[in-house]
Protein backbone atom coordinates (compact mmCIF):
# COMPACT_ATOMS: atom_id res chain seq x y z
CA UNK A 1 0.00 0.00 0.00
CA UNK A 2 1.45 3.34 -1.06
CA UNK A 3 0.54 6.30 1.13
CA UNK A 4 0.32 9.96 0.11
CA UNK A 5 3.82 10.78 1.32
CA UNK A 6 5.34 7.95 -0.68
CA UNK A 7 3.37 8.90 -3.75
CA UNK A 8 4.53 12.49 -3.48
CA UNK A 9 8.13 11.40 -3.12
CA UNK A 10 7.68 9.01 -6.06
CA UNK A 11 6.42 11.88 -8.25
CA UNK A 12 9.31 14.11 -7.23
CA UNK A 13 11.79 11.28 -7.76
CA UNK A 14 10.32 10.60 -11.20
CA UNK A 15 11.25 14.18 -12.10
CA UNK A 16 14.63 13.93 -10.34
CA UNK A 17 13.65 16.65 -7.92
CA UNK A 18 14.69 14.86 -4.73
CA UNK A 19 18.04 15.90 -3.30
CA UNK A 20 20.42 15.01 -0.53
CA UNK A 21 19.21 12.99 2.43
CA UNK A 22 15.62 12.98 1.24
CA UNK A 23 16.71 11.33 -1.98
CA UNK A 24 18.99 8.85 -0.23
CA UNK A 25 16.21 7.81 2.15
CA UNK A 26 13.74 7.38 -0.65
CA UNK A 27 16.15 5.34 -2.76
CA UNK A 28 16.74 3.09 0.25
CA UNK A 29 12.98 2.76 0.65
CA UNK A 30 12.64 1.87 -3.02
CA UNK A 31 15.02 -1.03 -2.60
CA UNK A 32 12.73 -2.51 0.00
CA UNK A 33 9.41 -1.75 -1.67
CA UNK A 34 8.69 -3.28 -5.08
CA UNK A 35 5.27 -1.67 -5.31
CA UNK A 36 6.83 1.73 -4.75
CA UNK A 37 9.44 0.97 -7.42
CA UNK A 38 6.64 0.20 -9.82
CA UNK A 39 4.91 3.46 -8.98
CA UNK A 40 8.10 5.40 -9.60
CA UNK A 41 8.54 3.67 -12.95
CA UNK A 42 4.94 4.43 -13.75
CA UNK A 43 5.34 8.14 -12.94
CA UNK A 44 8.76 8.39 -14.58
CA UNK A 45 7.29 7.25 -17.86
CA UNK A 46 4.42 9.70 -17.52
CA UNK A 47 7.02 12.39 -16.88
CA UNK A 48 8.98 11.30 -19.95
CA UNK A 49 5.86 11.98 -22.03
CA UNK A 50 6.36 15.66 -21.18
CA UNK A 51 9.21 15.60 -23.69
CA UNK A 52 6.55 15.84 -26.38
CA UNK A 53 5.70 19.33 -25.15
CA UNK A 54 8.98 20.67 -26.46
CA UNK A 55 8.58 22.60 -29.73
CA UNK A 56 9.37 20.29 -32.62
CA UNK A 57 12.95 20.47 -33.83
CA UNK A 58 14.61 18.46 -36.56
CA UNK A 59 18.09 17.19 -35.76
CA UNK A 60 20.62 17.85 -38.54
CA UNK A 61 21.17 14.99 -40.96
CA UNK A 62 24.86 14.83 -40.08
CA UNK A 63 24.09 13.94 -36.48
CA UNK A 64 22.99 10.40 -37.35
CA UNK A 65 26.19 9.75 -39.30
CA UNK A 66 28.22 11.16 -36.43
CA UNK A 67 26.52 8.86 -33.94
CA UNK A 68 26.94 5.80 -36.12
CA UNK A 69 30.60 6.67 -36.68
CA UNK A 70 31.14 6.99 -32.93
CA UNK A 71 29.35 3.70 -32.36
CA UNK A 72 31.75 2.01 -34.79
CA UNK A 73 34.61 2.87 -32.51
CA UNK A 74 32.75 1.92 -29.38
CA UNK A 75 31.51 -1.61 -28.87
CA UNK A 76 28.20 -2.22 -27.20
CA UNK A 77 28.80 -3.50 -23.72
CA UNK A 78 25.78 -5.70 -23.93
CA UNK A 79 27.66 -8.39 -25.81
CA UNK A 80 30.49 -8.98 -23.46
CA UNK A 81 28.46 -9.84 -20.36
CA UNK A 82 26.28 -12.14 -22.45
CA UNK A 83 29.29 -14.06 -23.74
CA UNK A 84 30.81 -14.06 -20.31
CA UNK A 85 27.66 -15.51 -18.80
CA UNK A 86 27.62 -18.43 -21.22
CA UNK A 87 31.31 -19.25 -20.92
CA UNK A 88 31.91 -18.52 -17.27
CA UNK A 89 32.36 -21.64 -15.08
CA UNK A 90 30.85 -21.91 -11.65
CA UNK A 91 32.32 -19.40 -9.28
CA UNK A 92 35.04 -20.64 -6.99
CA UNK A 93 37.46 -19.07 -4.53
CA UNK A 94 40.17 -17.12 -6.29
CA UNK A 95 43.74 -17.15 -4.90
CA UNK A 96 45.02 -13.78 -3.71
CA UNK A 97 48.02 -13.99 -6.03
CA UNK A 98 45.74 -13.97 -9.03
CA UNK A 99 44.58 -10.48 -8.06
CA UNK A 100 48.05 -9.00 -8.19
CA UNK A 101 48.14 -8.49 -11.98
CA UNK A 102 44.67 -7.01 -11.85
CA UNK A 103 45.70 -4.76 -8.98
CA UNK A 104 48.77 -3.64 -10.90
CA UNK A 105 46.66 -3.01 -13.98
CA UNK A 106 44.21 -1.01 -11.91
CA UNK A 107 47.05 1.04 -10.44
CA UNK A 108 48.42 1.67 -13.89
CA UNK A 109 44.99 2.64 -15.06
CA UNK A 110 44.56 5.11 -12.21
CA UNK A 111 48.04 6.47 -12.86
CA UNK A 112 47.25 6.84 -16.54
CA UNK A 113 44.01 8.66 -15.80
CA UNK A 114 45.77 10.91 -13.30
CA UNK A 115 48.57 11.61 -15.75
CA UNK A 116 46.07 12.31 -18.45
CA UNK A 117 44.26 14.73 -16.21
CA UNK A 118 47.52 16.46 -15.32
CA UNK A 119 48.38 16.59 -19.00
CA UNK A 120 45.05 18.14 -19.88
CA UNK A 121 45.36 20.66 -17.06
CA UNK A 122 48.90 21.51 -18.14
CA UNK A 123 47.81 21.82 -21.74
CA UNK A 124 44.94 24.07 -20.73
CA UNK A 125 47.27 26.17 -18.59
CA UNK A 126 49.82 26.30 -21.38
CA UNK A 127 47.19 27.48 -23.82
CA UNK A 128 46.13 30.11 -21.33
CA UNK A 129 49.72 31.27 -20.88
CA UNK A 130 50.23 31.38 -24.64
CA UNK A 131 47.16 33.51 -24.96
CA UNK A 132 48.39 35.82 -22.21
CA UNK A 133 51.78 36.04 -23.92
CA UNK A 134 50.14 36.87 -27.22
CA UNK A 135 48.09 39.61 -25.60
CA UNK A 136 51.15 40.96 -23.78
CA UNK A 137 53.12 40.96 -27.04
CA UNK A 138 50.37 42.85 -28.74
CA UNK A 139 50.24 45.36 -25.88
CA UNK A 140 54.03 45.74 -26.10
CA UNK A 141 53.87 46.38 -29.84
CA UNK A 142 51.15 48.95 -29.31
CA UNK A 143 53.21 50.62 -26.60
CA UNK A 144 56.26 50.69 -28.88
CA UNK A 145 54.21 52.29 -31.62
CA UNK A 146 52.86 54.86 -29.20
CA UNK A 147 56.40 55.53 -27.97
CA UNK A 148 57.66 56.06 -31.53
CA UNK A 149 54.78 58.42 -32.22
CA UNK A 150 55.50 60.28 -29.00
CA UNK A 151 59.18 60.52 -29.92
CA UNK A 152 58.35 61.89 -33.34
CA UNK A 153 55.94 64.34 -31.78
CA UNK A 154 58.52 65.34 -29.21
CA UNK A 155 61.14 65.84 -31.89
CA UNK A 156 58.81 68.03 -33.91
CA UNK A 157 57.86 69.88 -30.75
CA UNK A 158 61.55 70.31 -29.96
CA UNK A 159 62.13 71.95 -33.30
CA UNK A 160 59.14 74.17 -32.78
CA UNK A 161 60.33 75.02 -29.29
CA UNK A 162 63.80 75.81 -30.62
CA UNK A 163 62.33 78.01 -33.31
CA UNK A 164 60.05 79.64 -30.80
CA UNK A 165 62.98 80.13 -28.44
CA UNK A 166 64.99 81.74 -31.23
CA UNK A 167 62.07 83.93 -32.03
CA UNK A 168 61.61 84.86 -28.39
CA UNK A 169 65.33 85.47 -28.09
CA UNK A 170 65.21 87.73 -31.11
CA UNK A 171 62.24 89.51 -29.62
CA UNK A 172 64.07 89.72 -26.31
CA UNK A 173 67.11 91.12 -28.06
CA UNK A 174 64.89 93.54 -29.84
CA UNK A 175 63.54 94.64 -26.48
CA UNK A 176 67.04 95.54 -25.52
CA UNK A 177 67.47 97.74 -28.56
CA UNK A 178 67.26 101.48 -28.12
CA UNK A 179 64.93 102.89 -30.71
CA UNK A 180 64.61 106.61 -31.07
CA UNK A 181 62.69 108.85 -33.39
CA UNK A 182 64.61 111.91 -34.32
CA UNK A 183 62.83 115.16 -34.94
CA UNK A 184 63.97 117.88 -37.26
CA UNK A 185 65.45 120.85 -35.47
CA UNK A 186 65.71 123.09 -38.55
CA UNK A 187 62.98 125.11 -40.11
CA UNK A 188 64.13 124.37 -43.63
CA UNK A 189 63.58 120.62 -43.36
CA UNK A 190 60.41 120.15 -41.31
CA UNK A 191 59.43 117.01 -43.19
CA UNK A 192 62.66 115.18 -42.40
CA UNK A 193 62.26 111.84 -40.65
CA UNK A 194 64.88 109.74 -38.89
CA UNK A 195 64.97 106.62 -36.75
CA UNK A 196 68.01 105.43 -34.84
CA UNK A 197 68.19 101.84 -33.51
CA UNK A 198 70.97 101.06 -31.06
CA UNK A 199 72.11 97.56 -30.07
CA UNK A 200 73.76 98.04 -26.65
CA UNK A 201 75.20 94.53 -26.70
CA UNK A 202 77.09 95.00 -29.88
CA UNK A 203 77.41 98.82 -29.37
CA UNK A 204 76.31 99.30 -32.91
CA UNK A 205 73.41 101.21 -34.40
CA UNK A 206 71.45 101.85 -37.55
CA UNK A 207 70.18 105.22 -38.66
CA UNK A 208 67.56 105.60 -41.30
CA UNK A 209 66.68 109.05 -42.58
CA UNK A 210 64.52 110.47 -45.30
CA UNK A 211 63.64 113.82 -46.76
CA UNK A 212 66.84 115.42 -45.55
CA UNK A 213 68.08 118.09 -47.89
CA UNK A 214 71.16 117.31 -49.94
CA UNK A 215 74.25 119.14 -48.83
CA UNK A 216 76.95 121.07 -50.60
CA UNK A 217 80.08 119.18 -51.37
CA UNK A 218 82.00 120.79 -48.48
CA UNK A 219 79.48 119.74 -45.88
CA UNK A 220 78.48 116.43 -44.15
CA UNK A 221 75.81 115.30 -41.77
CA UNK A 222 77.51 114.01 -38.57
CA UNK A 223 75.86 111.60 -36.14
CA UNK A 224 76.35 111.82 -32.38
CA UNK A 225 75.50 109.46 -29.49
CA UNK A 226 74.73 111.25 -26.24
CA UNK A 227 75.87 109.16 -23.26
CA UNK A 228 75.51 110.76 -19.82
CA UNK A 229 78.87 109.36 -18.78
CA UNK A 230 80.57 111.74 -21.23
CA UNK A 231 80.49 115.54 -21.00
CA UNK A 232 80.00 115.92 -24.76
CA UNK A 233 78.33 113.89 -27.53
CA UNK A 234 80.36 110.99 -28.91
CA UNK A 235 81.18 111.07 -32.59
CA UNK A 236 79.54 108.28 -34.56
CA UNK A 237 80.53 109.18 -38.11
CA UNK A 238 79.40 111.27 -41.06
CA UNK A 239 76.96 110.44 -43.85
CA UNK A 240 75.41 111.95 -46.93
CA UNK A 241 71.87 111.54 -48.24
CA UNK A 242 70.58 110.65 -51.66
CA UNK A 243 70.23 113.98 -53.47
CA UNK A 244 66.89 112.97 -54.96
CA UNK A 245 65.06 111.26 -52.07
CA UNK A 246 66.98 112.72 -49.17
CA UNK A 247 67.33 109.18 -47.75
CA UNK A 248 70.24 107.50 -46.07
CA UNK A 249 70.75 104.17 -44.29
CA UNK A 250 73.79 104.21 -42.06
CA UNK A 251 75.29 101.55 -39.82
CA UNK A 252 77.29 103.33 -37.20
CA UNK A 253 79.56 102.83 -34.17
CA UNK A 254 80.55 105.39 -31.57
CA UNK A 255 84.17 106.39 -31.12
CA UNK A 256 83.94 105.59 -27.41
CA UNK A 257 82.38 102.80 -25.41
CA UNK A 258 78.74 103.55 -24.79
CA UNK A 259 77.01 102.49 -21.58
CA UNK A 260 73.75 104.20 -22.23
CA UNK A 261 72.68 105.69 -25.54
CA UNK A 262 70.32 108.29 -24.06
CA UNK A 263 69.82 110.28 -27.26
CA UNK A 264 70.96 110.59 -30.84
CA UNK A 265 71.67 113.75 -32.73
CA UNK A 266 72.67 114.74 -36.24
CA UNK A 267 74.53 117.99 -36.86
CA UNK A 268 75.64 119.80 -39.96
CA UNK A 269 79.43 119.83 -40.08
CA UNK A 270 82.24 120.45 -42.48
CA UNK A 271 83.27 117.72 -44.82
CA UNK A 272 84.77 114.69 -42.98
CA UNK A 273 83.38 115.64 -39.58
CA UNK A 274 84.71 117.18 -36.42
CA UNK A 275 85.72 115.72 -32.99
CA UNK A 276 83.06 117.71 -31.20
CA UNK A 277 79.87 119.22 -32.55
CA UNK A 278 80.37 122.68 -34.06
CA UNK A 279 77.57 123.17 -36.51
CA UNK A 280 73.83 123.38 -35.98
CA UNK A 281 71.83 120.32 -34.83
CA UNK A 282 69.67 119.07 -37.65
CA UNK A 283 67.96 116.07 -35.94
CA UNK A 284 67.57 115.17 -32.27
CA UNK A 285 65.92 112.30 -30.39
CA UNK A 286 62.54 113.19 -29.01
Amino acid sequence: MIDDRQEELAALHALDLLEGAERDQFVAELERNAELRGRVGDLRQAAAALAHLAPAAEPPAALKARILASASGSASRGRAPEAARTARPKARPVPVSSWIPWLAAACLGVAAIWSGRLYLEARSESASLREQQRLAQRALEQTRGQLADATRLLSASGREIAELGAKLKAEGDLAHFKISMLASMLGNSPAALAVAVWDPTREQGVLAVSRLPALAAAMDYQLWVIDPQYPSPVNSGVFAVDPVTGEAHVVFRADKPIKSAAKFAVSLERKGGVPSPEGPIVLLSR
Binding site: A56, A57, L68, A75
Partner: peptide, 26 residues
Amino acid sequence: MAGGDRDALAELYDRLSRPLYATARH
Protein backbone atom coordinates in the same frame (compact mmCIF):
# COMPACT_ATOMS: atom_id res chain seq x y z
CA MET B 1 22.10 -3.27 -30.31
CA ALA B 2 23.39 -5.25 -27.35
CA GLY B 3 24.51 -7.79 -29.93
CA GLY B 4 26.42 -5.15 -31.85
CA ASP B 5 23.83 -4.48 -34.58
CA ARG B 6 24.50 -0.96 -35.84
CA ASP B 7 21.43 -1.09 -38.10
CA ALA B 8 19.33 -1.39 -34.97
CA LEU B 9 20.99 1.72 -33.61
CA ALA B 10 20.22 3.55 -36.84
CA GLU B 11 16.60 2.47 -36.64
CA LEU B 12 16.27 3.47 -33.01
CA TYR B 13 17.76 6.83 -33.93
CA ASP B 14 15.10 7.29 -36.59
CA ARG B 15 12.40 6.53 -34.07
CA LEU B 16 13.60 8.57 -31.10
CA SER B 17 15.94 11.30 -32.28
CA ARG B 18 13.35 13.97 -32.97
CA PRO B 19 11.69 14.15 -29.55
CA LEU B 20 15.06 13.71 -27.84
CA TYR B 21 16.65 16.47 -29.88
CA ALA B 22 13.63 18.73 -29.37
CA THR B 23 13.79 18.14 -25.61
CA ALA B 24 17.52 18.86 -25.39
CA ARG B 25 17.21 21.91 -27.56
CA HIS B 26 14.28 23.22 -25.56
